[in-house]
Every structure is written in C-alpha cells, then in structure tokens.
Design a binder for these strands. Structure first.
Lengths: 128, 128
DNA sequence: TAAGTTAATTACCTTTAGGTAAGGACATTG
DNA sequence: CAATGTCCTTACCTAAAGGTAATTAACTTA
C-alpha cells in the first residue's frame, strides 16, 4: 500500500497529499498567478529539481488539480494550469501563505523588541 | 543547518513547519476542540507514536503555538492547550480540513457515477 | 512494598522525500 | 548535420520523518 492511499477517508490526510510536499504549495500558488511552462516553473522556484517538478506535476495531473496542455507552436511548449478543482485549493493556500507571512512578521517584531541587536541575531542565524 | 531553519523569510516554508507533519494538523485541531492531556491526545490519534507526539508538542511549545501546563492534582496531569498565537492557526486548519472533506466527497460522487461497481473498486483498493 | 499510571526519553531501524547527475526524445536553428 | 532548447525519465544516493520498543522517573493505589 503506497502512502498516497494510506488515508482514504480522512480529510486531514487527504488534504495533506496536496499541501505537505516541500514544493507543492509553491507550484500551485504560481499556477494560480499564471499558467506556466515547465521551464518557467523551474526558474520561479529556485532549488527545485526537475525530478520533483515533473513528479508533482504528474501527481497533480492525475489528481485532477492541474491540467497539462501541449501547445502546438514553435518552439514546443507545454503549459500547466489549474483545473476548476485545482482552483478550489487557492483560498486554502492563500490562508496558509497569509498566516505564514503574518507569523513571520510577528517573529520579527518580537526580535526587534529584544535587547539583542538584530544584526547579531542575523549573524547567529547565518552561522547555523 | 536544520530543516526547521532552512527557509527563514519564506511564508510558505515558514507555515509548512507547522502544517506539513503527518500528525501536526490533527494535534492542533484536537487542541482547538479542547485542551488535552498527553494520554488523551494519544487515544484520540490512533497510530501516533509517543515519540512523535512529544516531539511535536515540544516543537509547538517552543514555537509559542501550544502551552504546556502541569496541573497539581492527583493523579498527575499535564495539559496542553493552544496559545493565542496557536489559535490564529485554527482558521487555516479549518479551511484545509474543509477542503479535504469536500474533495473526498467529490471523489466518492465521481466513483459512484462510473460503470464499475463500487464494491469492485473497493476490492482493488484493498489489494494495493 | 509491589504493581500500575502518566508522561516522557532514548537508541535503533525503516520508509519516504527529495537531490544529483546522466541521458533520451523530439524539435528548431545555424 | 551539428548544436541547442524543451520536457522529461531513470538510477542512485542522502537526509528527514516517522515507527518500535525498551527504559525512566515520579507518583498512586492495593
């Protein structure tokens, strides 16, 4: 039994398939901003490997979240875009990103209130 | 550099620390429903190991998401509950679970429309 | 005092996720 | 026809996540 099938019936584990991967949210978020080609996604997500990018695109495709479209033009292009189902994930992703952003801001605010200079904290972080 | 520190500054990766673990959403969701003891969480989350449960509780504690409280009563009790910061995650988690639930329903609807009897599909799934 | 309960911790292991690097298929351009 | 660009696939490896099981410490109950 593969991990993808492990949690048939649990909403949490079901949703997790689409949101917990390192690059999944970033991929879907960018496809919401605009339908994109393979190469564009690779550029906009610095650090992602081609293996994982195709892997996730295939998974989203077979799950009905993303639609793959081969454009007959020159040079050859393959465009990926969200399906209607995929678009239902956008508000969820939006709330995740919004929370991440706010929580980061709060952390920064807390640090700048402390007596330790920010520069020192940043240095310490960089050393790790 | 640990994976927890890898993405300082990126809202997506920051939020992912709290939501992508196998049991994280389930733990927080239950703590929203009610403050709980270690043993209660273990019971309500069948399959979670004690190791992972303490691990996540420690992480949430040091992140300011969950508050640990030792109750001076007999028998000894340790209660975990969401902090104010932790409560800000609840709408996010709610939208994730809601989506998971709806998407599961859609999948079921699709399967029952197909010509293959559900029983056969279920058998095939069980075989994996 | 022995046994049980609660809340852990730890060492060890397996599984999964993700990264690296090589290469292939197909088309276009020079 | 060689070189280049796009969109992959594959084999192999490392690192991270998670599970198992033994153990502990503090306390309680019989």
């Amino acid at each position: 039994m593969s991990s993808k099938d492990l949690y048939i019936g649990c909403p949490v584990q079901h949703a997790r398939q689409f949101l917990s991967g390192k690059w999944q949210i970033a991929i879907l978020w960018h496809l919401k901003i605009q339908p994109s080609r393979f190469i564009e996604l690779r550029k906009i997500l610095p650090g992602i490997s081609e293996k994982v990018l195709t892997q996730e695109l295939r998974f989203f495709e077979t799950s009905g979240i993303v639609q793959r479209e081969v454009l007959t033009c020159t040079p050859q292009k393959v465009e990926y875009k969200l399906t209607l189902q995929g678009q239902t994930l956008i508000p969820v992703i939006q709330s995740i990103i919004q929370w991440g952003y706010s929580h980061l801001q709060e952390e920064k605010a807390k640090r700048s209130m402390s007596s330790t200079p920010i520069s020192v904290i940043d240095e310490l972080e960089a050393m790790q």
